[in-house]
């Protein structure tokens, strides 16, 4: 009897959690100014890691080795970055080492993949966890400079 109650409660909670996660997953949310972390410190950390930023925008993706959606995110963001020469997609492996983990904590990254969109000064504009919605990323990046020849 106890087992039946535990079973029903567990499935209900898991289903509720799943629905919430599904609705939030990949949503690109604008970063409020108060939540934005110090751009200068961030730029210094990125430089120390050898991460090259885009002239206008940087699509900073955090990935882990055990992560299938990270691959989908990589494909999507690389595709978006290809549409604009001043936008760069860079990927940080959170498991690579302590400097990477320091960056993860600095930006308070909790899941992989998480994408942080930075402006030319390293100021955070928006972020998304999960595979970002393409149209929401494009809304920030803007229209491509040249007509895009897509392979899809």
């Amino acid at each position: 009897m106890t087992g039946l109650v535990v079973l029903v409660v567990t499935l209900l909670l898991a289903a509720a959690a799943g629905l919430v996660l599904r609705s939030r997953n990949g949503q690109v949310r604008a970063t409020r100014e108060a939540a934005s972390t110090g751009a200068a410190a961030l730029v210094a950390q990125l430089d120390a890691l050898g991460v090259e930023r885009g002239e206008r925008l940087t699509l900073l993706q955090f990935s882990s080795p055990f992560c299938a959606p990270c691959r989908a995110t990589r494909t999507l963001l690389a595709d978006v970055a290809r549409t604009a020469p001043d936008v760069r997609h860079v990927e940080v492996d959170v498991a690579a080492g302590d400097p990477e983990l320091a960056l993860v904590r600095h930006l308070d990254i909790r899941r992989t993949p998480t994408t942080v969109i930075l402006d030319s000064h390293g100021e955070e504009l928006a972020r998304a966890s999960g595979v970002p919605r393409r149209e929401q990323v494009l809304a920030i990046v803007g229209p491509p400079e040249t007509p895009q020849v897509s392979g899809r």
Binding site: S64, F66, P69, A95, L101, V104, I109, R110, R111, T112
Partner: peptide
Amino acid sequence: GCELYLLQRR
């Protein structure tokens, strides 16, 4: 499992 991975690393 993927979610736990990063939290455990942190």
